[in-house]
Nucleic acid binder design. Structure first.
Length: 760
DNA sequence: CCTACATACACGGGA
DNA sequence: TGTATGTAGG
């Protein structure tokens, strides 16, 4: 019965069975954290704790789903299904829907995504007649978001000297007022943004002690995964909920804290000891995932950071291969190098596609890898970037759903009132918006107000508005009697979206129809599953889920055996046999914006640590000397992080690091400090002092005079790398050379344009 | 009011 | 490079 305890090491077992009182589980990378969490919960359930009395918070839906699954296999799926397990946002959205009346919100409130928020901010900036150049919606939103995560309301914000001074310094002194109006507009629209879900939960618990008490009583056990990534708002919710029973267990790794940009406070995990003085500490230090070389390389990286919880992560696996470093001439060549390597390694080592992951710092880097993989016919899946739910046609249809459920939702209304085109243009919208602002009503209320005739809108347009209102009302009337799928299909056609898309005969147009079909199929599946389970399956229920979904949540069956492309951020918690960390260059990783402060740089280094520790047997790091940024060719040098890895664990070609290509170490050795064994001199070879800390090196490519170029010669190209000349043809000035590049394939180059260096 | 084209701006990560 | 916005002409 307790055989699940068998395969655990001592530290893991203690963390599983010592369930009472506050516990801090420090879980090094790959140390079996998920196992501990799942077994701990399973253990509680086996001890007779009721599942609905356990609250378990994760950072992704996927993590929650997988854990539920695994717990279910121990205690039965029915029991596991009644756990309060999910992301912060989904759990508290659920509580807020239930308690919404206390806050004056409809229980079917809309959840605004980032784009909705930005659009709303933009319209507020316009209305306030502020300089739209200075008040960029994204910047304003991140200020507002930061305030909300710190539980700073607009009134407090206005008095907060630090914040207002910061805003003045960045030419946006009026943010406090935008914030106030933003909140008001959201409320008017019956909408909450992501941060509101947490902020409003705090307000709910603060202002309605009875409600707080209800949940405090209910949750005997509170568990939090990835605690290092919680922000203040989340921290306080947890603290309040665990206050009564004090059975709080938080799991995390300070070395993997990588979300400070969205308000995460690494201090939360560092200060746990102060919040719960009688806490028990469990340290999971054995890494079961990676080879010794990978763990050691990762340790040597993180050792460069200060202020960590002391721990000794080790691996008892094979020593394994060293961390390889590859140099490419260009982003394109980097793509070829990596895909070739995947191709060959898969053959040689009999790996599967799913054993490979390409991890990058920014989503924009994915394109060249996509192209290279496509050319080589390697199947891949790509995460992030434009997710399914952010495609225009999907957002359009979802906006109709939103509006049907919550007509006050202004962002949804603005999106579809004239899509498909029905002759309601800017002039009309301006009049309606003005009326809404003046009367402090939602746009919808203006539309359904009989006084609309007095707004100076011509009769024809009034008719169009009336038929739009009727259309939505007609959908709304069917909310109760139709299933999610039935109503969704009805809306897709009756709204005119389908017809509009069918008018577009282009390939993209066909793709959009396919996407809509896919969405409808998804809704159909949702409907049928829910109906089978006896759960409500109406459009409201679907929409409740969809706002908090991420694209990692709808992996399809045919997506399983493919090469994975994702940002390092989204790779956290995952593992792959072979990991390629690409674009490890100054200015990209670490990002330029992160090099201004030690704090930012340390987070960036933790990100690098996360990247390396994703690998089980092979980790490969690559950098390109040139790459396109904003469509412009830029030059870069290898990241200082490469120099942070102890050389003993690196497999590096010395010739790749000549002169100022040598990665600069992050730190000079402090004066007087003795050299630690893991801090040996970095890359020794071809060492030529280039004045560390000098400004950007000019890596200008030196091309040769190609007049005497002949077949058989070896040449080097700025972006394509090294190759051999196959043939020369044509007459001056149109001499054309055919060159076969080692990594970029065969190219025909006009010599008057191509910059080639003759190598022999 | 709509469409087509030109120009400006963007890339730091995400629930 | 791609997307969002502005403008001219229909």
């Amino acid at each position: 019965m307790q055989d699940y305890l068998e395969g655990l090491n001592d530290a893991q077992r203690s963390a599983v069975v010592e369930t009472d009182g506050p516990s801090l589980v420090i879980a090094g990378a790959g140390s079996g954290k998920t196992r501990v969490l799942t077994f701990r919960i399973a253990h509680l359930l086996q001890q007779g704790v009721k599942p609905y009395r356990v609250l378990a918070l994760t950072f992704t839906n996927k993590a929650a789903r997988e854990m539920k699954e695994r717990i279910g296999s121990v205690v039965g799926q029915g029991i596991a299904g009644s756990l309060w397990m999910g992301t912060f946002h989904s759990i508290f959205a659920r509580i807020l829907r239930f308690e919404s009346k206390h806050l004056g919100y409809p229980s079917s409130f809309t959840i605004y995504d980032t784009q909705d928020s930005k659009n709303l901010i933009k319209s507020i900036v316009k209305r306030m007649k502020l300089n739209e150049k200075a008040y960029k919606p994204g910047s304003v939103l991140s200020r507002i978001s930061a305030a909300k995560n710190d539980l700073v309301t607009p009134v407090v914000y206005a008095r907060d000297v630090n914040r207002t001074a910061h805003d003045k310094a960045s030419q946006m002194p009026m943010i406090y007022e935008i914030y106030a109006q933003y909140m008001k507009e959201c409320y008017k629209s019956g909408a909450m943004d992501f941060d509101d879900l947490l902020l409003n939960t705090n307000i709910l618990f603060r202002d309605f002690p009875d409600v707080l008490k209800k949940y405090q009583d209910q949750f005997d056990y509170v568990m939090v995964d990835e605690y290092q990534d919680t922000n203040y708002s989340q921290y306080l919710i947890i603290k309040k909920l665990a206050e009564k029973h004090q059975n709080i267990c938080v799991v995390g790794d300070d070395a993997q804290s990588i979300y400070s940009f969205r308000g995460a406070k690494i201090e939360n995990i560092l200060n746990f000891r102060n919040d719960y003085p009688g806490y028990k500490l469990f340290k999971l230090e054995q890494n079961y995932r990676s080879s010794q070389n990978i763990v050691n390389a990762a340790n040597s990286i993180i050792a460069k950071n200060k202020g960590q919880i002391q721990k000794n992560v080790f691996s008892a696996n094979d020593e394994g291969s060293r961390v390889r470093v590859l140099k490419a001439y260009s982003d394109v060549e980097e793509g070829f190098l990596i895909t070739n390597d995947i191709f060959e390694r898969r053959m040689k080592e009999h790996c599967e596609y799913k054993d490979f992951a390409i991890l990058y710092r920014t989503n924009a880097q994915s394109r060249v890898f996509e192209e290279a993989l496509r050319k080589k016919n390697l199947p891949y899946k790509i995460y992030g970037g434009l997710s399914f739910y952010q495609r225009k046609e999907i957002k359009d249809l979802l906006a109709y759903f939103r509006l049907t459920i919550n007509p006050a939702d202004q962002e949804a209304l603005k999106r579809v009132i004239n899509y498909p085109a029905r002759g309601i243009g800017k002039t009309t919208m301006d009049k309606l918006t003005a009326a809404a602002d003046n009367s402090d009503q939602s746009l919808w209320n203006v539309l359904i107000n009989p006084n609309i005739a007095q707004l100076g809108i011509n009769a024809g347009t009034q008719k169009k508005l009336a038929s739009f209102v009727a259309l939505i009302a007609q959908f709304k009337a069917q909310l109760e009697n139709l299933s999610a799928y039935e109503l969704a299909a009805e809306i897709a056609s009756a709204s005119g979206i389908m017809k509009d898309l069918h008018n577009d005969k282009s390939i993209e147009g066909q793709g959009r129809i396919d996407n809509i079909d896919e969405l409808l199929n998804g809704i159909k599946e949702f409907t049928e599953t829910r109906q089978e389970e006896g759960e409500p399956a109406q459009l409201v229920n679907f929409l409740e889920d969809v706002a908090l979904l991420t694209d990692q949540d709808n992996e399809k069956g045919d997506d399983i055996n493919k090469v994975t492309l994702m940002t390092i951020h989204s790779a956290k918690g995952l593992e792959f046999k072979n990991v390629y960390i690409v674009g490890v260059e100054e200015g990209l990783f670490p990002a330029t914006q992160s090099t201004d402060s030690e704090k930012n740089l340390e987070e960036e280094r933790r990100l690098f640590y996360v990247a390396v520790t994703r690998a089980e047997t092979n980790a490969t790091i690559s950098f390109a000397r040139s790459r396109y940024k904003y469509g412009e060719l830029t030059y870069s040098r290898p990241s200082r992080f490469i120099g942070d890895i102890d050389q003993a664990f690196l497999d590096i070609n010395p010739e790749d690091f000549v002169g100022n290509e040598r990665p600069q170490p992050s730190f000079r050795k402090p004066m007087g400090a003795q050299s630690s064994p893991t801090l040996k001199p970095r890359i020794r070879m071809n060492y030529r002092s280039s004045g560390a800390g000098a400004e950007k090196p000019k890596l200008k490519f030196q091309s040769s005079n190609t007049n005497g170029l002949q077949a058989g010669m070896k040449v080097e190209h700025e972006r394509f790398g090294v190759g051999e000349v196959i043939s020369i043809e044509g007459v001056d000035p149109n001499v054309k050379a055919t060159v076969r590049f080692v990594n970029a394939g065969q190219k025909q180059l006009l010599l008057k344009f191509a910059k080639l260096k003759i190598l022999n």
